[in-house]
Simulated scan of single mutants.
Amino acid sequence: MTKEQFIEKINSKLKLIRNEKNYTQDRMAEIIGISKKTLVQIEKGRASLGWSGAIVVCFLFKDSEILKMTVGNDIEDMLISLAFGKSERNYSKTMGGKIWWRDIKKKSNYKIQQNNISGHYRILDENNQRICSSFDEDYINSRLIELSKLEYTNN
């Protein structure tokens, strides 16, 4: 997924998210910081939230079932992967991806998973601790090889 595709998805679901939360156009526009006129244009497909507006919607409505079904359950990870391309930071432990993720490849004590909805990748260790994430499959595969070699060297 590209930033542009992400923005298009959020634009297309904005009205559904608003209806899911039972907000009027006036209230929704106020919440996300745009004019009602702009909101109406977005809902009609004539304008766009843009990158920052789409992020605001994801942040403010991260509990939305519509949003989860559109971009996946791990919205923060997906946004970081889109923004930075490759993400490696101190992540909290995951549940192992039983619903939103499918295992792609295992090597040593690491596995690559792909999100069923957004399509982005992540590497988990044997404790389901996330190591990195990205939409770049080549990067993820090379990172898995590096991690496996590092583990082999340390043992």
Rank of each mutant, 00 (worst) to 15 (best):
D63V: 00
K106L: 09
S92L: 12
I17M: 10
I112S: 05
K105V: 07
L60A: 03
N22G: 02
K21R: 08
Y91G: 10
M95N: 15
Y110S: 10
E88F: 09
D77Y: 06
A54M: 02
A54C: 06
K106S: 12
N115M: 09
I42E: 05
A83R: 13
G97A: 13
E43A: 00
L82V: 06
N109I: 10
A47T: 08
I17R: 09
K37R: 10
N90A: 07
Q113C: 13
I117N: 06
A29W: 02
I32N: 01
N109Q: 06
K15E: 04
T94L: 09
K105H: 11
R46Q: 15
F61L: 04
I99K: 14
N73A: 10
I34F: 00
S48N: 08
R18K: 02
I99Q: 12
F84R: 09
Q114T: 12
K21D: 06
K36R: 13
K107E: 12
E20S: 02
G33R: 01
S35M: 09
W100Y: 15
E76I: 12
F59L: 09
K106N: 11
K62Y: 14
D26W: 05
W101L: 13
G97N: 15
F59S: 12
W101G: 12
D63F: 01
F61S: 02
K86V: 08
F61V: 02
K15A: 04
R27M: 08
D63W: 00
I32D: 01
S64M: 04
A47Q: 10
E65I: 13
M95P: 05
A54H: 00
N90E: 11
M69V: 03
I104W: 03
I104D: 02
S118P: 11
I66M: 11
K111Q: 15
G45D: 05
N22I: 03
